[in-house]
Amino acid sequence: MNILVCISNVPDTTSKINFIENDSKFDSNGVQYIINPNDEFGLTKAVWMKESNAANVTVLTVGDQSAETILRKCLAIGADKAVRIDCDANDAYSVAKEIEAHCQSINYDLIICGRESIDYNGGLVPGLIAGLLNYNFVTNCVSLEITDSKATCAREISGGTEISECEIPLVIGSQKGLVEESDLIIPNMRGIMMARQKPLEVLEAKNISAKTSDKKFHKPEAKSEVKLVKPDELDKLIDLLENEAKVI
């Protein structure tokens, strides 16, 4: 079985969010990049499937050269091969189109993307890929079993889970639950050494034009000071919530 895991290179969760060039661009100066957390759950699952499903795991990112650091990390975690499509990833649509084009040349049985990225939080790429390729699609995926060509998936829905069955090829949006936090693989020395030998292919982009563009960023207004209520005056808190904030 051939598995593709799409990886997004995102700012570390503690990064300071600032903008440059007249607030039109994210300031990546001094920012540490990490594998998008939702993608990492999917990658771990894919690495497990190397054994359970005799799978071959390719990781892919659409981005510039700076994204190769996290691709190497994915190889150290256990992916067999890495692909970078060389362009600036600015818009979900063009990213999905680049991935679609790659998937037209190599047939993957399973494409795993994180449910959403923690930078733009759009949650668009997995659905777009599924729609463009006309593959089955399950997002917010918290469990996946593939036997022969049949997949059984669980999806988190509002207030519960939904179990469904379908044929592969399939696109899933992964998140915590697909594997647990404690299952995430921390690369060891051997993994890191082996990763250096594994192929990292750089592909030319199709340079598809974007459908959306960020014109201007701005940060939320500074908050006003917290109003403190003494623990022995809780009636006051209830009054404030009822009459001032009007939320209860």
Binding site: F19, Y120, T212, S213, K215, K216, H218, P220
Partner: peptide, 15 residues
């Protein structure tokens, strides 16, 4: 729209 998990907003143009 919100982005960077609510740490910022973006004015986004749609073609």
């Amino acid at each position: 729209r919100t982005c960077f998990t609510n740490k910022a907003f973006s004015s986004t143009e749609m073609i």
